[in-house]
């Protein structure tokens, strides 16, 4: 889609289609091509200041702006939900600056920007996921220096990561990482899948959808191309496992979706509901149809 054709869709006067200027988008797209060519490798890019604060999805927004075309249908979720305030704010930003169609329904979306979840509804090859990433470096909390961690990636020196996981087992009996759980991509780079719960990690493996990750403050982007091996780190005697609940969703009855815990009264009674609001709604709609 060329810039001129896109301009007519822009509803916010004075800004380019999807806010960023075309040169900046080109720079980001070049970075994305590199990221797709080297799965899991963190590509430094000239991240721009966005009109939203750092840490609130500026990396994801820049990637979305760079790939968005006028015909795209955008879905934005935060914690799995379409109606959380920041998801509303980002969706509205692109509706204003790009005039694109937005949706809350996963199957209808062509671009899904997300913070901390992957939808429960399986993705297809025509969809692109854009992840908001706070700290792109999986080794950061073991080694604070960027110079060091870049060298470690170059040398595939990931021993410390396994030592850290082993220390967890020695202390707690389990790997004590429950989100932002590190993965190995395409048998080469160890990658932070962004702070999605480890429940979502298996959805990255051999996904037909393109996965793009953007860290605005840290000025890094990376990618998992479609049908790429993504393996969560583990040990033979302590295999990777995902979260399970004894309860099911109080609204749709789902037993296999990621659940949010709600405290519903002063006595601390709990109730569990789907974190993916669209998935929950789809199931409830189906149920109603079935009843009629």
């Amino acid at each position: 889609m060329n810039a001129q054709a896109q301009t007519q869709y822009a509803t916010e006067v004075g800004y380019n289609f999807a806010y960023l200027d075309e040169q900046t988008k080109r720079m980001i797209r070049r970075g994305l091509l590199k990221a797709v060519a080297v799965p899991g490798y963190q590509v430094p890019f000239g991240g721009r200041e966005m009109p939203l604060p750092y840490g609130w999805g500026t990396g994801g927004m820049q990637l979305t702006a760079a790939i968005l075309g006028a015909e795209d249908v955008l879905k934005v979720i935060d914690q799995g939900a379409d109606d959380t305030t920041n998801a509303v704010s980002i969706r509205r930003f692109f509706a204003r600056t790009a005039g694109v169609k937005t949706t809350t329904r996963t199957p209808e979306a062509t671009v899904i920007q997300t913070r901390h979840r992957i939808p429960e509804t399986p993705l297809n090859g025509d969809q692109i996921m854009v992840y908001q990433v706070p700290i792109p470096e999986p080794l950061r909390f073991i080694e604070s220096s960027e110079t060091e961690t870049r060298t470690m990636h170059a040398l595939e020196d990931y021993g410390v990561m396994h030592v850290k996981l082993y220390e967890d087992i020695a202390t707690f009996g389990h790997i004590a990482t429950s989100y932002a759980y590190p993965v190995t991509v395409d048998e080469r780079y160890v990658m932070d899948p962004s702070p999605i719960p480890k429940f979502d990690n298996p959805k990255l493996h051999m996904s037909p959808a393109l996965m793009l990750f953007g860290a605005g403050r840290e000025k890094r982007l990376y990618a998992v191309p479609p049908y790429t091996q993504v393996v969560s780190l583990d040990f033979e005697d302590h295999p990777f496992e995902i979260q399970r609940w004894d309860e099911c969703c109080a609204l749709c009855g789902s037993q296999d979706s990621y659940l949010d815990e709600l405290i519903v009264d002063d006595a601390g009674s709990k109730r569990f509901v789907c974190s993916d609001t669209d998935y929950c709604m789809q199931r409830r709609d189906l149920e109603e149809e079935g009843e009629q």
Partner: peptide
């Protein structure tokens, strides 16, 4: 601007990650 942004993002909902920590 970077520091204020990243500190203030703690105000965003984190209940998905917190739920996984609770479970653990």
């Amino acid at each position: 601007v970077e520091a204020a942004g990243f500190v203030s993002h703690l105000k965003l909902p984190h209940y998905v990650d917190f739920q996984s920590e609770l479970e653990l």
